[in-house]
Computed example of a mutant assay.
Amino acid sequence: MGKVFIHATVTLDGFMADSDGGVDWMFDFEGVEEDAEIINKIMEEIGAIVGGANKTQTIEEGEIPYGGMVKVPTYLMTHEAHEPIERDGITYSFVVNDIAQAVEAAKADAGDKSVSLLGGSISRQCLNLGLVDEIQLHVVPLLLGNGISLFGGLDERITLERIQTAAYADGTHLRYRVVR
């Protein structure tokens, strides 16, 4: 069985989005072949995704995890029941308030591949429940000053072990194992 990992691009000051939730800044950096190799390896490893649903429980353009390049089952956390949505070969299932259930369903779908956790709230909840095996971050050389923090509000101290560090072009790739 694969692992469960948090996967995010963050600014040097730890924000995954600006104050309005925008991530346009993420595309202002030019990578090199080595950056692409790291990203592609991670994307090939993903067998399912757990993230948060939008308020209208729809799958809008610009909200599709990985821009639709990773066509795997996707579980979206919500507070109200909703039928699954099929779009562009991806099934989006909505899970009401039980993140552990969403992760277990995603792990079952992923088989030998891994589950990618997307979003700050999802990541923090899964860390607090002990469901996370690794954290994989891409840090870009930008200070937003304020925005939506990936780990802000985490309820406890989490010890990490560095597995990999690589730096190319305009970013640093970090991979940590969660020490239990």
Rank of each mutant, 00 (worst) to 15 (best):
G89M: 05
F15S: 07
H79V: 13
I42K: 06
S116N: 11
V72E: 06
T56N: 06
I90K: 04
L174I: 00
E45P: 05
E161M: 02
P73Q: 11
D18C: 05
G111I: 13
L142N: 08
F15G: 09
L174M: 06
K71F: 04
V132A: 01
M26Q: 12
D98P: 09
G67H: 07
E161G: 06
N146P: 00
A105V: 10
I46E: 05
A105L: 15
Y168K: 13
Q136Y: 09
Y92N: 00
R124P: 03
V178D: 02
G67P: 09
L118C: 02
I90E: 03
F29L: 09
H82Q: 10
I90L: 01
D133R: 05
E45N: 12
M77T: 06
G14F: 06
N146T: 11
T9M: 12
G89K: 11
A102P: 08
S123D: 01
E80L: 12
H82G: 01
H82Y: 05
S121Y: 08
Q125P: 08
I163S: 03
F27M: 11
G120T: 04
M77Q: 08
R180S: 06
E34H: 10
T58M: 00
V50Q: 02
T172E: 10
I85K: 03
K107V: 12
F94V: 04
V4W: 08
E161W: 01
L174K: 00
D18F: 04
T9D: 05
E83F: 05
Y92H: 01
L160G: 00
K3M: 15
L118G: 15
I38R: 14
G145N: 03
G145D: 07
G22P: 00
I122P: 07
D20F: 07
E33P: 04
V4T: 14
G147W: 05
M26S: 07
E80A: 08
A8V: 01
E80K: 14
D170Q: 15
E44N: 14
N40C: 10
V72D: 09
I39S: 10
L150N: 02
F5R: 13
V70Y: 00
G51Q: 06
L160S: 00
H7Q: 11
L131W: 08
M43Y: 15
Q164L: 11
I39H: 13
A106F: 07
R162F: 02
N97D: 14
T74Q: 01
G147L: 02
F94P: 05
M69H: 13
G120L: 05
V70A: 01
N97K: 13
G21R: 03
G153W: 10
A48Q: 08
A105T: 10
T165L: 14
A81F: 11
Y75S: 02
E86H: 07
I38V: 15
R87Q: 11
A105C: 08
V103K: 12
G68C: 07
L131F: 08
S19I: 15
R162N: 07
V23R: 06
M69R: 15
I148V: 12
E80S: 11
M43T: 13
R162Q: 15
S116G: 07
A36V: 10
Y66Q: 04
G153D: 13
Q164W: 09
G2N: 07
